[in-house]
Write a protein that binds this DNA or RNA. Structure first.
Lengths: 276, 276
DNA sequence: GAGCCTAATACCCGGTGGGTATCAGAGCTT
DNA sequence: AAGCTCTGATACCCACCGGGTATTAGGCTC
């Protein structure tokens, strides 16, 4: 009566994301009628209307939005169970550490040295670490406060530092000893790039839209945007750019995060202590 | 190939908990042969041996222990999805707050007043709040640091206080201005009670074993054990007992906890600010 | 009103989850 | 040592249900 199967959750997520039964069915590799029936049955079992069907598709109800969020985390948890169990059965399983491209090499190197066991490093795009951790693709993540979403993880701080602005050497700001956030936000010819939100849409603003680190690097190199980043991120500093301290930007803490209850906790904590 | 159904997880959890196919099958309401087959199939699909079958039952492998832990959290997440979706579809859904019996009445009252919306209060035993939160039976929990397991939740502190020891008025310690943890631990005629661990076993020690608050209350009332608790817990202080400050006991923080990403976050945060 | 695009309904089929009956092997008991 | 007992595994069958195709039912556009 009240235990759903993951299949039903997958089906619902597909429909909720596509908002279209036909496309969702195609994505799932099944025909449209069984999918319609499955969703109807799901609604009957939950006793709740999830979608408002309409002549040109479907729209989520409030309850549907709740289920979409909950179903995603539940499916992640199931995936995590599969991945972690498989890895636990592998005799020479490496620890998987996920980090975004562009994190400090020195710190990463020191960390890998501190961990005696073999470690596999997985690179992902900005903001993706949490998801990799949640669905079991990684055991531990290198993340940054206050940027990354740390909700639901245990953490150990590694390093705290201030931020600098990366500007073309020829720009007026490049001569400054230091700048403020208000100043860098207001530079009209170097609007700050906009990252997508969790739902894939972009906030309004004058800056260019970017999805990946490499897109951003391209824009910075072209002198089309400026960038506020932790001081240690030397990878961004080409000869034709300079780094100017931003006095009132929040401190950035590089830290390790892992799912609560994971057996990596003790290992990682001691490594974090060792390396700093 | 790599997506399990919750049914398979439920079956495995039952076997892993009973360590006996027959009893597990009975608990699940199915016959033993299909259960054996399901577990075998699960092992084949994961490519990992989960149980060492034996003449007198079964024992978990390392991978099996991993799957047991992961499967429980995944099943909790699925239950949470069902509960929260049902509640989201209910037009006059109350917020469900879970607290252990014996928490401060004044604080709880102030909190309920601060929350404009109707709130349903759910009482549970010590240490059970986290589970109620994880499987969606509650939206927010009143918990205590450093006692409760806060892993995986967002929190807002409400109140911090020191601890006192509750001892019979006739006892020598009752005359003291203050005591230390070392002193109260060493009182031979009032050994501190032992609570079960997460797996249900008890740590060694001279004190009586308790499972519930009321059992403990009984023992305290009988003068068979002493108790170190936050100073505000007046409910424990009968006329024939006195409270003696414990100078080196850790401060106890009463706080609200909720699952990350929950829409109650903003509501609860503002209420927490209002009430203190 | 014709044509379309949507989701829902009708109906059939095959796979598989669950049932009973039975087997197989490792301790006990005597 | 033979047999009993308790375990999980195997064999086999059935019925349900998840998935398929064909079709219907609305509502929009032109």
């Amino acid at each position: 009566m009240d235990d759903l199967e993951t299949r039903e959750l997958r089906y619902f997520v597909a429909v909720a994301e596509e908002l279209h039964f036909g496309r969702a069915a195609e994505r799932l590799g099944i025909a449209q009628p069984p999918l319609s029936r499955a969703i109807t049955q799901l609604e009957r079992r939950l006793g709740v209307r999830l979608l408002d069907r309409d002549r040109r598709g479907a729209a989520l109800t409030d309850a549907g939005r709740v289920l979409l969020r909950e179903a995603r985390t539940a499916l992640d948890a199931v995936s995590a169970a599969v991945r972690r169990t498989r890895r636990a059965g592998d005799p020479e399983r490496p620890l998987v550490l996920v980090t975004k491209a562009g994190a400090s090499h020195e710190l990463l190197r020191a960390l890998l040295d501190a961990l005696a066991d073999p470690v596999e490093v997985l690179l992902c795009e900005v903001g993706e670490q949490a998801h990799r951790l949640r669905d079991g693709q990684a055991d531990v993540a290198l993340m940054h406060r206050p940027f990354d979403d740390l909700a639901g993880f245990d953490t150990a701080d590694l390093h705290t530092e201030s931020q600098v602005a990366i500007v073309p050497a020829a720009h007026p700001l490049a001569a400054r000893e230091s700048v403020t956030l208000a100043e860098v936000s207001a530079v009209p010819d170097l609007p700050i790039a906009r990252w997508p939100r969790l739902d894939g849409t972009y906030p309004d603003g004058p800056g260019p839209e970017v999805r990946t680190q490499s897109q951003l690097a391209q824009l910075v190199a072209l002198g089309r945007t400026l960038l506020v980043i932790p001081a240690s991120s030397r990878a961004w500093q080409w000869p034709e750019h300079v780094a100017v301290p931003v006095v009132d930007a929040p401190e950035v803490t590089t830290l390790l995060a892992w799912p609560p209850g994971s057996p990596v906790a003790s290992l990682v904590r001691s490594a974090a202590k060792l390396s700093f």
